[in-house]
Amino acid sequence: MSTHTAIAITGIGKVEEIQLPTPTPGPGEVLIKIAYGALIPPDAYMVDLGFFIQEYPVVLGFSISGTIAQVGEGIDDLKVGDRIIAYSYLDRKSKATQQYCVQPRTVVGKIPDSLPLEGAGSIPDNLVTAFYTVFNQLGLPSPSFSPTSPPAKADEPILVYGAGSSAAQYAIQLLHAAGYNKVVATASPHNHEAVKALGANAVFDYRSPTLTQDIAKFVGGNGKIKLVVDAISNEVTLKIVSDIVDEEGVVALLLPIKKGNTLSADKKEDLLLEVPTEGNPFAPSVKIIGVRTFFYQQDEYLKENLMPKIIPDLLEKNIVQPNRVRLLDQGSLLERVEEGLDLFRENKVSGEKVVVKIDH
């Protein structure tokens, strides 16, 4: 049996290079030769805290780009050599920090030849998260992305809090392309111009002591916003969002919720999957949705269409652009992965996606 190199968590705080059997794709699956894999903060939570881990070893990474190496039975729309992206959220054999992986067809999408594989590696997990959050969890209708067919509530203000994050950047692009014209965002000042270029109609400094008042002035009316995506979801952002959201509003929190004021966590107990009853800053009438992107495949339409059809079409038509990439391509594969994990531990990622080149 052939094997390949993988970077895996082998215990709390332990990341090592290991060899894994290279799987053969079954019916409805493809084998992918991975070119690039992206890392996100939950990868660091998994390494350092054992977050969401049932057994070891665990390969890292929820997002990949590469080429089709083998096609399983029943797949007639992909072939060997096709350039693809995949949302690699399933078990060990599907994850990103390894030379080969197997994926079901439903999480794989072809990409245009014009899109570099390193940029493509930034796309799947956070674009899936953004689409699912905005057009499923938040309740907005499925978009046509046609300028001649604007949505019914095109003038509804929508807040995307934490626009320096990858998922938030995709959410802004999707909302803009769908025809919403009051997309409000918060970000660090050095990211403001980039966020506006993505389609935000107004961007505010999240550190400003007058943030709530500034947003209220822009929104007008009662100064409140009914639809909010919190892409940071920590104790501080929840409090700020609670001051901005309308009493009859909906808030989508990208899980997990972090204690404190950063994306990092010191212990597993600092990562929550729901707003705690004690200290909940929201009015009882506000609808709170904890977004678990993995659940998007429970929606049959999204399962069959989002990665295989909708996202490839968005990329082909240049409706969505990849995140700015922090490419890690120096040293060994293990050293690259460890460098990426350190960036999250030290809160050094803003406005970009950490993408690791995979050795072959």
Rank of each mutant, 00 (worst) to 15 (best):
Asp76Ser: 10
Glu17Met: 09
Tyr180Trp: 07
Gly11Gln: 11
Glu29Thr: 04
Gln213Glu: 15
Leu227Gln: 04
Ser88Phe: 03
Val128Phe: 08
Ile319Ala: 01
Ser242Asp: 11
Leu20Lys: 04
Val219Gln: 03
Gln297Phe: 08
Leu302Val: 10
Val228Lys: 00
Ile232Lys: 03
Lys217Ile: 11
Phe52Pro: 00
Thr97Asp: 03
Ala197Asn: 08
Asp205Pro: 05
Thr97Leu: 08
Glu300Asn: 10
Ala163Leu: 05
Asp91His: 13
Asp230Asn: 05
Ile75Arg: 06
Ile9Glu: 05
Glu339Ile: 04
Val203Thr: 06
Lys14Arg: 12
Val15Arg: 01
Val241Gln: 03
Thr293Asp: 14
Glu316Pro: 04
Gly249Asn: 01
Val349Asp: 06
Pro147Asp: 07
Met46Lys: 15
Ser65Ala: 15
Asn234Ser: 08
Leu327Glu: 01
Glu316His: 12
Glu278Pro: 04
Glu193Pro: 07
Ile34Gly: 00
Thr186Gln: 07
Gly249Cys: 02
Cys101Gly: 15
Leu175Ser: 00
Ile310Leu: 15
Gly11Arg: 09
Gln103Pro: 10
Ala86Leu: 11
Ala178Leu: 01
Leu174Glu: 01
Leu31Ala: 11
Phe135Ile: 03
Pro143Val: 00
Pro256Asp: 09
Leu306Phe: 10
Leu255Asp: 09
Pro42Phe: 14
Asp48Ser: 13
Asp329Gln: 11
Tyr206Trp: 12
Val241Ala: 12
Pro124Asp: 13
Ser165Gln: 13
Leu272Ile: 15
Val102Pro: 00
Glu235Cys: 07
